[in-house]
């Protein structure tokens, strides 16, 4: 009888520990995640411009690897964003970088491969938690 009591207690502790871990789990980095789709920045914009509903279905929440040319880098105290040229002056692919992501050496004009999670399309296609692929 006592044996079972210990088992139950052990399970409760394990379960509690797992629950606590899940509850506190931070948003996972994309650094080691494989990309679901690989596209160029102009192509990614085109996909959303031509059929947004369809593109939402195919790309929302997906990890996308985008190749493009940097047009500008916006930075403030809390975050950095890398804008990629799409051939359309009004609409970019905007990659909001993961906190602490290394954008050293990136300047307008440099070509880059960025991996990020697609959140959708407003005027631009927005990727979040982005990391530079080396």
């Amino acid at each position: 009888m006592k044996k079972y009591l210990w088992l139950v207690l052990l399970l409760a502790v394990l379960g509690g520990g797992y629950g606590y871990y899940q509850y506190n789990r931070p948003v996972a980095s994309l650094e080691d995640k494989e990309a679901d789709v690989i596209l160029s920045a102009p192509d990614l914009l085109k996909v959303f411009e031509s059929n947004e509903a369809e593109a939402n279905k195919n790309y929302l929440d997906k990890v996308i690897e985008v190749k493009g040319e940097v047009t500008k880098i916006e930075a403030d105290s809390t975050k950095k964003s890398v804008y990629l040229n799409t051939g359309n002056e009004m609409s970019a692919v905007i990659c909001e970088m993961e906190a602490g992501a290394d954008t050293e050496g990136l300047t307008p004009g440099s070509s880059v491969v960025v991996k990020g999670k697609c959140t959708g399309y407003l005027m631009d296609v927005v990727l979040v938690q982005s990391v530079i692929k080396k």
Binding site: Q22, Y23, R25, P26, V27, A28, K79, M123, V126, V128
Partner: peptide
């Protein structure tokens, strides 16, 4: 969410905001 788009026209007073819901960042993944 730090990726909101907004346009304001001071001639007419028209103002627009748009956000992508998935671009909201929480501390906890769950």
């Amino acid at each position: 969410n730090s990726k909101a788009t907004s346009v304001v026209d001071f001639a007419t007073g028209a103002i627009e905001w748009g956000v992508l819901v998935k671009a909201f960042k929480f501390e906890k993944a769950l």
